[in-house]
Amino acid sequence: MDPIAAMIGIIIGGVIVGICVHFIPASAVGAMSASTGIATGPSMLSAGCGLAGLYAAGYSIKLGLPITVASGALGSALMIICTMLLANAICAFGTGVAPVAGTYDKDPITGWRQKPFMSPGTDGHSMPTTTALSGIIGALLGGAGGSLVFASTYGMLTEVTAIATATAITIAGMVAAGVFLVNCVLPAYVLVGKTEGMTDPKMKKLPKTLISCIVASVFTGVFIYAAVVVI
């Protein structure tokens, strides 16, 4: 891969990672079933699914960029689907609360009413259909973005240096994980620890995330390019 194209890939991948965090439903108070979303911080959940995507992408790195990106996106989505399924099962059969969202009265996909099933004093529980779909979209974006960074870094390393394939994959994976974590913490600042995904009003703050992630990714991408290619 051409080093300049790889640098642009790292920047675009970083920005996509930033966007993905807005779609993934996560909330710290979800641990007490007091809010819709998986019970952890949005950035850590996004990082978890993104790193799962990187593992999936690592196995298909030699099959070309499109397959690597698709593989990463699917690996990441699979991870979040399993997490949401189990979280919903625990809430439904363990805690005894139905999956309901606090930000809409009727589920836009199923049309099911939400408010009558919400416990008093809470903002919802676990993940209803639309919120779960939002999580899957977020994970697909996150996995694709992370894999794009991974494949771009790998392409840059194999083009410029003469290191072994296994070593290049290891280093590209670490750099991709680093870029992923840099870009998934900035949206967490915007979301302040809680989001319901694409139906959350905080989606309006997406431009702030976008600008921040572009700035952070440009600096990171240019530095990686400078270190590997120029110096």
Binding site: I171, M174, V175, A177, G178, V179, F180, L181, V182, T220, F223, I224, A227, V228
Partner: peptide, 9 residues
């Protein structure tokens, strides 16, 4: 992540 990425690069 920033520190490690910088050093590894």
């Amino acid at each position: 992540a920033v520190g490690a990425t910088v050093v590894f690069a």
